[in-house]
Design a protein around this nucleic acid. Structure first.
Lengths: 190, 190
DNA sequence: TTTTAAAGTTAGCAAACACTAACCAAAAAA
DNA sequence: TTTTTTGGTTAGTGTTTGCTAACTTTAAAA
């Protein structure tokens, strides 16, 4: 998928955006940070847009393990529980990624970027909603709240917690706090 | 607070960011859109950073009516209900603002911007959490879920819905959908 | 009526931007 | 061993960026 150098470039790019926003991602800064010249970057990526696209691809690859939790066999509640845990575990390991994964604004300048981000967002939302819907039919999850809104509460609260975490300078333990959130989410699902 | 021209500049700037991200907000684009020359802009704002700061001020002023709903006297559930309704009503009227109000990434390039955005975010969160906490003590709201996490679910689901709305091209009726979300949020609070 | 201040103009500047041309060294393939 | 490919380099391109100098018009104040 990515060569070692390409992965380094993508990860450095994510770091630059995480630190000072998309306007901080310039070819010059990227080359400087890595310690090679600007033209050398173009041996690994056609242009800046391709780097941006690769960041999204990197998102997808990195978050795949947590998505897979939702695709396993088993009880809906357990799948959602494992999804949340995996999610926070990964983002705790890749904190720069946590800072920009929900910053859709960074990918608004190009239509193809915007579209593929929307696709990723819709995929996870649809998957979660499908699981909840089915579990509601099986009487595993409370039907008082619609599947759509329950999905919004779960994903929304997860996202919001991650944003609070990254904006506050990662001062709290996201995995511990995520565990507590997960417990409370289970309560409203029953 | 703002002169007419300043307000026009701020609103146009919000429109530019909403349309193609922060990288689309340039002095040239701004002047072009308004129909004046670039140097004319500098008669109204010292520099670009002051325009960015004014966008945040404009946020605050615009969302004040919905914040005030939380400061009224009355039942917690009613206050939260009115807060949600007002929120969606305002953002439905100012759709460009809806597109960027939760796009924290746009204000990451400057420390002072980042700080004042964090302050605004924390304020609304603290206010909401305080109301819920008190209502839990009065047995008005269910204590099964902690006030902190209930706040995350409410604000998180609201934010997520607005992001879905703006990214999907505003294809659904946010006020109607917000009403349904509000009903479901009330259910989990009881 | 004269003076002053506010708000506009054209022309242009230095720095930053994404990217290219041309060349070179080292490693891999033939 | 020769050839080709890969991944670097220095130097430089044209364009865009935020912003300024200097001048002009319009309207309010004296």
């Amino acid at each position: 998928m990515f060569t070692k150098r390409q992965q380094q470039i993508v990860e450095t790019a994510i770091g630059l955006i995480a630190h000072k926003g998309i306007q901080n991602l310039t070819i010059k800064n990227l080359a400087l940070q890595i310690g090679i010249s600007e033209p050398a970057l173009y041996r690994h990526f056609k242009n800046k847009l391709e780097i941006m696209k690769s960041i999204l691809k990197y998102f997808q690859l990195t978050m795949q393990p947590s998505m897979l939790e939702l695709k396993k066999e088993g009880k809906a509640i357990d799948k959602i529980n494992d999804f949340i845990f995996k999610h926070y575990e990964i983002l705790n390991q890749k904190q720069n990624l946590a800072k920009i994964i929900f910053a859709e604004a960074n990918f608004q300048n190009d239509e193809t970027l915007k579209d593929s981000l929307l696709l990723m967002m819709n995929n996870s939302q649809r998957l979660m909603q499908g699981i909840i819907q089915q579990a509601q039919e099986n009487d595993e999850i409370n039907t008082a709240v619609t599947a759509k809104n329950l999905t919004r509460m779960i994903i929304g609260s997860m996202r919001f917690m991650i944003i609070q975490w990254s904006m506050s300078g990662m001062i709290f333990d996201i995995e511990a706090e995520g565990k507590l959130l997960c417990e409370d989410l289970k309560k409203i699902m029953r």
